[in-house]
């Protein structure tokens, strides 16, 4: 695996080019370009806000910001996984005619999505900052939700990268062999989204289940690296908020969250290594699947 990795370093230029190719193709041919890719999560968040705020009357000030913030890492995970799942199938013909290391194919999509994730996050941070300042100028209320800990965001983002890469190595190979895996992955992602604290705050688990049972459930819940990354991502970015439908205020990023974040990075790192080994064992067989 070490020699494989050295080989990979030699090809980093090709990785760069494949990433740039994907981003160019994605942002070209449309007026809004990068804007379009933000439109989809924005629409989702808008719908969610309307539902929660007006229909269910569980309003939290700025609830949409909290949902959108969690949506960013979630979209990196789900879109990245789906892109990578499709990648080997898309490069089938190219693989049959060329001989570069195959892991570059899913990796290029993962990296392209990471860049996209980073750009969207920056846009979100600027929007939050400017929005708060405008709000203050207009109403005189100083409600600056951004936390100085945003500077630590690269830590959960690194964990996300390991996680998405690890999952992608497995899913891309399986999809090449069995198209069904693509549909299974898609469905599974829909379930995973609700298992992760995207639309809600994880504290709700403890609130609904007080006592030892709740603690246990919370512990197991947080073992999901996605849950720990998204929680960390949100808490590092935004100030604690009042939970919808409850009087509780969420906790800021604390020792417990850091602990789960660490576990998440360890789990994801292991998964990434296992995935890479899995992939490399099969990589020269992939072109034979035509």
């Amino acid at each position: 695996m070490v020699s494989e990795f050295k080989d990979l370093l030699k090809y980093r230029e090709l990785l760069t080019i494949l990433v740039v190719r994907d981003l160019k193709v994605r942002y070209k041919n449309s007026v809004l370009g990068f804007g379009w890719s933000l439109l989809n999560p924005l629409v989702q968040v808008l719908v969610i806000t309307v539902v929660f705020k007006f229909l269910m009357r569980g309003g939290t000030a700025n609830y949409s910001a909290y949902v959108f913030c969690a949506m960013l890492p979630w979209l990196f995970f789900s879109v990245g996984t789906m892109d990578a799942a499709n990648s080997l199938v898309m490069y089938r013909e190219v693989m049959r005619k060329t001989s570069f290391p195959r892991e570059l194919i899913p990796l290029a999509y993962v990296v392209a999505n990471l860049i996209h994730f980073t750009l969207s996050t920056l846009v979100f941070l600027v929007y939050m900052a400017v929005g708060s300042i405008v709000w203050w100028r207009v109403t005189g209320i100083w409600d600056f939700a951004l936390q100085p800990t945003v500077l630590l965001l690269p830590i959960p983002m690194f964990g996300m990268l390991l996680l998405v890469a690890g999952v992608s190595f497995f899913v891309s190979v399986w999809t090449l062999y069995y198209t069904d895996v693509l549909y299974l992955t898609d469905s599974l992602l829909k379930v995973l989204m609700w298992l992760a604290p995207v639309m809600y705050f994880p504290e709700v688990l403890r609130e609904r289940m007080p006592g030892l049972r709740g603690e246990l459930v919370y512990f197991l819940y947080m073992l999901d690296p996605l849950a720990s990354f998204i929680t960390a991502f949100r808490k590092l970015t935004l100030a604690p908020a009042k939970m919808p439908g409850s009087e509780l205020i969420t906790q800021p990023m604390g020792g417990e969250e850091w602990f789960y974040l660490g576990i998440g990075i360890l789990t994801s790192g292991t998964l990434a290594m296992a995935g890479y080994c899995f992939f490399c064992k099969r990589k020269w067989k992939l072109a034979e699947r035509a």
């Binding site: 230029e13 080019i17 190719r21 160019k24 193709v25 041919n29 190219v94 060329t98």
Partner: peptide, 20 residues
């Protein structure tokens, strides 16, 4: 190999050349 219809000639030359 690896040519993409949406990219320009120059971009495709770079892509194909590096693949080779």
């Amino acid at each position: 190999a690896g040519f993409h219809p949406d990219l320009t000639g120059v971009e495709n030359i770079e892509l194909n050349g590096v693949i080779l």
